[in-house]
Design a protein around this nucleic acid. Structure first.
Lengths: 201, 201
DNA sequence: CTGATTTCTTAAAATATTTTAATTCTTTTA
DNA sequence: TAAAAGAATTAAAATATTTTAAGAAATCAG
């Protein structure tokens, strides 16, 4: 197993991410390792399926996942993409122990760290710094989603595509366009048209 | 000033709301009062304007507010409505002390409790139960927004209107239709058509 | 490496939504 | 309470987006 410094490579990525947001003592960092397990998800495999109760929250060490819902007509609708250093999961399902609304599928071979519900419940009391870290994560999630909603309501598909180019250009290299189109709430055909129009200028 | 039990009427509503989510000792409840101030906002008056740094987070004791952004074409786009027992504000602006993106306007004469930034920073260390309460509030915000985004992406305006009828029927009585239309991301004319179509069946 | 499958693009026709404008209904104000 | 202002409805024309279908390009499996 690859090792960097005191930690396994995968755990190190999580610890670095936490340390980029809060102070984390060496002792806490060491304890933390015991809370997480590693999992690999092959391309096109599922980390979670709607209807199944989600048993974990996932931190992406390497790879790319999409989160989608199936609508009344049976169509897949992407709502989020996760890449390195993102947390992903169906948090409502995880917390309330209720069936998930979302599917989570790997778009590449992906490596995640995950924490189960029992350990999650102990985490905050035993590693206090983590409480602040997750408060920041949830605040960021709330902020990000707030502006997403604003964008979805106020902007045209073309403007939302331009936003995506600015905010997450790496996704356009990594994710098939049909998934981008679904994320933008349009058909692949219409996205193709938008791209042509932008390229012409 | 009206008084119920030991507390002023307005503060009591907040304390009851907190107690419906976490245990709150009498001592903590008493301390809490000192953190909040009261404010009245007349109909059509603004609690916050985009461009101004938001100095507070607001708890609605009585009344109704809308949160909106102005888009590139100068149009107002409602993103949220707050009624009794809702927290409202531009949290990004409040936390980062940066200019607000949102306008918040009263649709009725509204009474709010607010906490300023200095007190917010002391709140969590001095009244520990509150940390859990706000974690729950943010979790709920994240969950609510997650399903809002899913809805916006997956459903037609008509379906979103039906959702609104089921989830927040009181808003339809309270909020002018042009604001509902803006919230749904459509024109008032189109909402009118949807309503007629639904009524016909 | 090659055939099979999936993804992307193009164009035309169909549908959904907005815009404009006029009319009625409701609320506000003097 | 009447007049004025704002909000909701209707319909027709204009525009945005989806659907369908087909071919080209890229990726995958044997």
């Amino acid at each position: 197993m690859t090792s960097v410094g005191r930690f396994r490579m995968d755990t190190k990525k999580l610890i670095e991410h936490i340390q980029s947001h809060v102070e984390l003592s060496e002792q806490s960092a060491n304890r933390l390792i015991g809370y997480f397990e590693k999992k690999e998800v092959g391309k096109k495999e599922y980390l979670l399926r709607a209807g199944i109760t989600s048993r974990a929250e996932y931190f992406i060490v390497k790879g790319c996942l999409r989160v989608f819902v199936i609508d009344a007509k049976g169509g897949e609708n992407n709502v989020r993409f996760g890449t390195e250093n993102w947390w992903i999961g169906d948090f409502a399902s995880f917390m309330k122990k209720q069936p998930a609304s979302y599917f989570i599928q790997a778009l590449e071979k992906t490596e995640v760290l995950f924490i189960n519900r029992t350990k999650w419940d102990h985490l905050f009391s035993e590693i206090p710094e983590i409480s602040t870290y997750f408060r920041i994560m949830f605040e960021n999630a709330a902020l990000g989603q707030q502006s997403l909603i604003a964008q979805h309501i106020s902007y045209t598909p073309e403007e939302r595509y331009q936003e995506l180019i600015e905010n997450r250009p790496e996704l356009l290299q990594r994710v098939p366009q049909k998934h981008i189109a679904s994320y933008l709430g349009i058909t692949p055909e219409f996205l193709s048209m938008i791209r042509r129009k932008i390229a012409e200028n």
